Amino acid sequence: MSKPRAFISRRIPQPAIDLIAAACDYGIWDDWMAAPRDVFLREAAQSDGVLVMPSEQINEEFLDAAPRVKIVANMAVGYDNIDVPALTRRGVLATNTPDVLTETTADIAWALLMAAARRVVEGHKTIEAGQWGAWHPFYMLGQDVYGATLGIVGAGRIGAAVARRAKAFNMRVLYHNRRRAPHLEVALGAEYRAFDDLLRESDFVVMTAPLTDETRGLFGAREFALMKDTAVFVNVARGGVVKEADLVEALKRGRPWAAGLDVFEVEPTPKDNPLFELPNFVGTPHIGSATLRTRTAMAMLAAQNLVNVLTGKPPLTPINALPNRV
């Protein structure tokens, strides 16, 4: 009996490739960058399952081109690149990689929060440019983190991990979510707030909720105007939740005081993005899960989901459910 065929859309850690190779014939786009769309669709058309990155759009076009595919294993926790209802209608399973990247992504949220609050990148550039001036009481003043109020939008796994770290800084933790999160309230003393109230009260606002129809463009001119003029805004969710042009104007006006983004509306973001002209902005190139241990764990979970489905077993972390499937 011939093995099922899988296609891997990008170079991934070798242990995950070995896992797939043991159960499947496979093809791989062995490069750091995404395959051209026509190449990706051609490879998918010859495959029973695909392991993809968030950059691959899985939509009706994909489904028309790849009728054999039974499983789309997304190597990410977010899946805004996947038309889940379309896959479900066609009887195709989709999976993601939750949990394994939670702590690492929470770390990058805190890295951006601290860097923005204490002007770390601005200070580095000042030294690099030979502009380190004489010390005086008002030189390079930042914002205090210890004892401040942290507002988290999105009380999922990553939001909870961000909140846990806040306790070490003796911070008051507020949160906004579609549903109340009693576990955060009991374990961490977090307080629920309506969205606008959270923006008004928080010294730091961290966005961790997924990109959905409800959250797309959630942060715009109105929302930034509600924040304190000492507030720091951080986004580690998806770039589409922020209207970047509005953020640029808000930072110029000083409300919020500073911002840090790991994700952008367009990725890779162009080097002439006006955000990078602002001294009160810090950006990183979507590296929230970028440690070798975490990326390997993500690849292994995606690979196991792929192999399970192609060998007749249930996936570990399904996004959708299909009728009459074990």
Rank of each mutant, 00 (worst) to 15 (best):
L251H: 09
E249W: 10
K243E: 15
F233G: 00
T296C: 02
G239M: 07
V248Q: 06
S289C: 14
S289A: 15
F281Q: 01
L275G: 03
L301Y: 00
E244H: 01
P279E: 01
L251E: 09
V242A: 06
E244A: 02
R295K: 10
A250R: 05
D262Y: 13
D262H: 09
V232L: 05
L275V: 11
M300P: 01
F264N: 05
V234K: 00
G288P: 07
H286G: 07
V248P: 04
V236G: 02
T294G: 00
L247D: 12
P279S: 01
R253M: 13
R238T: 14
R295E: 10
N235I: 01
N273D: 13
V266M: 04
I287T: 13
P270L: 11
T284C: 11
K243C: 14
L275K: 09
E249C: 08
L275A: 12
V248H: 04
T296E: 04
K271F: 12
P274Q: 02
P274Y: 04
F233C: 00
E277S: 06
L251T: 07
E265N: 05
K252S: 15
F233A: 02
L251M: 10
V236N: 01
D272N: 13
V236D: 01
E277T: 12
A303N: 00
A259S: 13
G240E: 01
A297M: 07
E267S: 11
V282W: 09
R238D: 03
H286T: 14
E267T: 10
A290M: 13
R293V: 14
V236E: 03
K271L: 13
P274D: 03
K252D: 15
A258E: 09
P274T: 11
A245M: 11
